[in-house]
């Protein structure tokens, strides 16, 4: 029943046998112990599980691990390079873009994608770009400021 897959996660190749129905998020969390990617709904609605798959922000709760076979995945743990925070991570810290931190990894990945597509987004564009990600703590204003900070920085 199990299927062999090979996925490159945060620059490290992994060859694993998984159940075909295993969700990508569970693969990352359970098989690879990368628990920075969170689960908030399992139904593609909250964005807590957002990761980059071949450069695209995707909700890893709605993708089977087998669908990610052969792809490059970046999770929150892989965002900092050589010990240097990604500008979005820095922005979240500087501008108090997080409280409980549960939505944060998904938010940061989604925000990084926004900036990749549009290095100088307006506040409205930022808010729009974050529509797939829910935060119950911050009210989003500091998140918007965090992304603006990152845009200026990068």
């Amino acid at each position: 029943m199990k299927k062999a897959i090979s996925i490159n996660v945060n620059g490290t190749p992994h060859n694993t046998e998984v159940e075909p129905r295993m969700l990508l998020v569970h693969y990352l969390r359970d098989a690879l112990a990368l628990t920075g990617t969170h689960v908030g709904c399992e139904t593609s609605l909250c964005g807590a599980c957002t990761v980059l798959m071949d450069g695209q922000a995707v909700k890893s709760c709605t993708i089977f691990a087998v669908q990610a076979d052969g792809s490059q995945v970046t999770t929150i743990e892989g965002l900092a390079q050589n010990g240097e925070l990604h500008p979005v991570q820095e922005g979240f810290w500087e501008r108090h873009g997080l409280q409980c931190g549960y939505c944060t990894p998904g938010m940061i990945i989604a925000a990084a994608q926004i900036l990749e597509r549009n290095p100088n987004p307006s506040q409205e564009e930022i808010r729009h770009g974050l529509e797939g990600n829910l935060c119950r703590c911050t009210g989003y204003q500091h998140i918007v400021e965090a992304v603006e900070y990152a845009a200026k920085k990068s």
Binding site: T35, G36, I76, E77, L98, G101, Y102
Partner: peptide, 21 residues
């Protein structure tokens, strides 16, 4: 003052219940 709890959380290194194995 910037939060001391943030570095672990923005790196995805905090531990919520389901992260404890």
């Amino acid at each position: 003052v910037k939060r001391t709890e943030d570095p672990r959380l923005i790196k995805g290194l905090g531990h919520y219940v389901d992260d404890i194995r």
